[in-house]
Simulated assay, not measured.
Amino acid sequence: MKIEEYLETLPENLLSGEDVQLPEKSFREIFKFVDLGENDIFYHLGCGDEKGIEIAINEFKVKKAVGIDNNSEKIQKAKENLNAKNLQGQFICSDVEDSDISEASIILFWFTDEEVINNMMMKFEHLKPETKIITIWGPLPDCLPDKVSFPYIINQTPFKKAENMQEQLLSIFGVKCIDFVTAWEFAERYTKSIGTPEIQNDRFLTIIQTLMIWINAKKLGVACGEEIPESIQTYIKLMKMNFDIDFGHLLNE
């Protein structure tokens, strides 16, 4: 089956990120990267549980922390868990697109739905200057990142616009072109950053991410060289033979 067909076999909530919770180590890495501190008002959009808010309050001593999610059961549970620990955070049950985020100084925003992202961009554009928005894996659309520690990316208002996708892609990876080694390194960083210690299929996920990074780079004309690297060819064959997942057609589009 084509890789797109394989992704469609996965649970919808997994693809949307609805049931994907960042491990605590990832929150700490993100908060250190963005220099979260006592003068900040932190918003976690699509918070799910209370962990990010708890760590922001308890360990990084933020002035205020707000979690927003449209799942009422998760919000209620998050409130109960935080109250049980005597921590003063705020949770709001709402679609992020309808929420007032104007007071935020730092926002964690990890969404894959293009419609949500595009709608939020209009809200982000009106935030006060120097508001930091942290994304995971990709920057905000058409924007050059202000700071990168892949897979964590910061865009700060007012946004810097990229001239094209090539400029944006290379600004993330910090290289002049993308080869197999670069694609593998960054795919592995992503898998390790969002994965839990007990994850069993991290190499499988890394291979998929590596192939997608390199193939996208090839399409955008920023892959190193004209030929398909032997390592890329080998992994494409392995995915086809062992898992019946086909990437080959993407190279011909």
Rank of each mutant, 00 (worst) to 15 (best):
F180W: 14
I213N: 09
I207H: 07
I199S: 05
F159C: 09
N201P: 08
K218F: 01
F186T: 08
E167V: 12
N216V: 04
V181Q: 10
Q168F: 03
V175G: 00
T157I: 06
V181W: 04
G225P: 00
D146N: 15
I194W: 08
P145K: 03
I133S: 00
W214G: 00
N201G: 02
M122K: 13
I178Q: 01
C143M: 15
N164Y: 03
L140F: 05
K132L: 06
F159T: 02
Q209M: 15
F186P: 04
D146Q: 02
A162T: 12
A162E: 01
E185D: 15
P129L: 04
K123T: 02
K160V: 05
S171H: 08
E188R: 15
I153V: 09
M165I: 14
A187M: 06
A223W: 03
D179V: 00
E125S: 10
S149D: 11
Y190C: 10
S171I: 04
F150P: 00
P129I: 03
L169V: 10
L140W: 02
S193H: 00
A217D: 05
F150T: 01
K132Y: 06
Y190G: 06
T210S: 12
M120N: 07
Q168C: 07
M120A: 05
G138C: 15
I133P: 06
N164C: 11
Q200Y: 07
Q156H: 02
F124E: 03
V222Q: 00
P197T: 14
E125H: 09
W214E: 00
E185C: 11
I136Y: 06
D202G: 11
E188M: 09
M121I: 12
A162W: 01
I172V: 15
I154K: 03
T157A: 09
W184K: 11
L220A: 13
M122N: 13
P151G: 08
P151C: 06
G195R: 11
F150R: 02
R203S: 15
E185V: 05
Q156A: 11
D179Y: 01
I228M: 06
G225R: 04
V148I: 12
L140M: 07
I134S: 02
A162R: 05
K176E: 14
Q166V: 09
V175F: 01
N201R: 12
D179S: 05
K218S: 10
Q156Y: 00
F186W: 06
P151W: 02
I172S: 07
G138N: 15
I207E: 09
W184P: 07
A217T: 01
S149R: 13
F186K: 10
E198A: 12
A187E: 07
Q156I: 07
M122H: 11
L140A: 07
G174T: 09
H126Q: 11
Q200M: 12
T157G: 09
C224M: 05
L211T: 05
C143H: 08
E198Y: 12
G221M: 04
K161H: 12
C143A: 15
E163H: 10
K161E: 14
F124Q: 03
G221Q: 01
P158K: 01
L144A: 04
T191L: 11
K219H: 10
L205D: 13
P129V: 02
A223H: 08
Q156S: 14
F180S: 09
N155L: 06
E188K: 15
L127P: 10
